[in-house]
Computed example of a mutant assay.
Amino acid sequence: MIAGILAGLLAAGLGAYYVYQPPQSPGGSSNAPTTQDADAKAVDALMALPEIKAWSSHIEKASKGRAHGAVMETAPEQRLVDGKPYYQLSFFESTPDAAHRWESFLVSPDGKRILVEDLASDELFSLERWRKESKPMERAGN
């Protein structure tokens, strides 16, 4: 039941999130960054990680296109870590029946700082520590 609810929420969230197009001002683009620009930078930075690219490719191939990798904001509010704001994002394997979270991340609005969140221990890891200890590329068969 919970998986069904999560799948429905994920589908609705992904539909709203990926359909979003930043508004353009009538006179062209503004120099002031918007919250949505920062949101997009954070997602783009996460999507650029080699682990996320490898996981997405692995999911597509292993499922023969029936499942896909997806990044979704998992909390509407930013989280402060050492006084700095971070978006709360997760990478999911999205299937027609459910969504399975692979990993949770905190990403700064400028996309320059990425932390990995261990939900079991509520501990935050640097990318370097996460790569060394968790060996995330092994999940994609690399």
Rank of each mutant, 00 (worst) to 15 (best):
Pro85Val: 01
Pro109Trp: 03
Val107Gln: 02
Ser56Arg: 09
Gly111Glu: 01
Tyr17Cys: 10
Leu80Asn: 00
Gln21Val: 14
Ala75Asp: 07
Pro22Tyr: 10
Asp82Cys: 05
Ala7Glu: 04
Ile2Ala: 08
Asn31Pro: 04
Ala62Lys: 15
Lys132Phe: 02
Glu73Pro: 03
Ala140Tyr: 02
Val116Cys: 00
Asp82Pro: 01
Ser90Asp: 02
Leu10Lys: 06
Pro76Gly: 15
Met137Lys: 06
Pro136Leu: 04
Leu9Ala: 10
Ser63Gln: 11
Trp55Gly: 00
Leu106His: 08
Arg113Gly: 01
Gly8Cys: 11
Gln36Leu: 15
Gly83Lys: 03
Pro23His: 01
Ala12Glu: 09
Ile5Tyr: 11
Pro109Arg: 06
Pro22Arg: 03
His100Thr: 03
Ile2Leu: 13
Trp55Leu: 09
Ile52Ala: 07
Ala67Trp: 05
Gln24Arg: 14
Gly111Gln: 00
Pro109His: 08
Met1Glu: 12
Phe91Val: 14
Arg131Trp: 08
Ala38Ser: 11
Lys84Trp: 00
Val19Asn: 15
Leu119Val: 15
Ser30Asn: 12
Ser56Ile: 09
Ala3Met: 13
Asp82Glu: 00
His58Asp: 10
Glu51Ser: 01
Gln88Ile: 04
Thr74Glu: 01
Lys64Gly: 13
Val81Ser: 02
Thr34Phe: 06
Ala16Gln: 14
Thr95Leu: 05
Ala45Leu: 14
Leu10Phe: 14
Ala98Thr: 11
Asp118Val: 09
Ser121Arg: 10
Leu9His: 10
Pro136Met: 06
His58Lys: 09
Asp37Met: 02
Val116Lys: 04
Asp110Cys: 05
Val19Tyr: 13
Gln36Cys: 04
Ser29Met: 13
Gly15Cys: 07
Ala3Lys: 14
Met137Trp: 04
Val19Glu: 13
Leu6Tyr: 05
Gly65Met: 11
Glu117Leu: 13
Asp110Leu: 02
Ala48Pro: 00
Tyr20Gly: 05
Pro96Arg: 10
Val116Asp: 01
Leu80Phe: 02
Leu127Asp: 00
Glu77Phe: 02
Ala70Ile: 11
Leu115Met: 14
Leu49Glu: 11
Lys61Glu: 06
Glu103Lys: 04
Glu73His: 12
Ala70Tyr: 00
Asp37Gly: 13
Thr95Asp: 07
Gly27His: 08
Asp122Ala: 06
Lys84Ala: 09
Glu77Arg: 09
Ala3Ile: 05
Asp118Thr: 14
Met47Val: 04
Ala12Lys: 14
Leu9Met: 11
Thr34Ser: 15
Gly65Arg: 04
Ile5Pro: 06
Ser57Ala: 11
Ala48Ser: 10
Ala67Lys: 15
Ser126Gly: 01
Glu77Tyr: 00
Arg129Asn: 03
Pro76Gln: 11
Ala11Trp: 12
Asp110Gly: 12
Phe91Pro: 00
Arg113Phe: 08
Pro50Tyr: 08
Tyr87Cys: 15
Ala3Leu: 10
Arg66Thr: 12
Glu123Gly: 11
Glu77Leu: 04
Pro26Lys: 05
Ser108Trp: 09
Ile5Phe: 02
Arg66Cys: 07
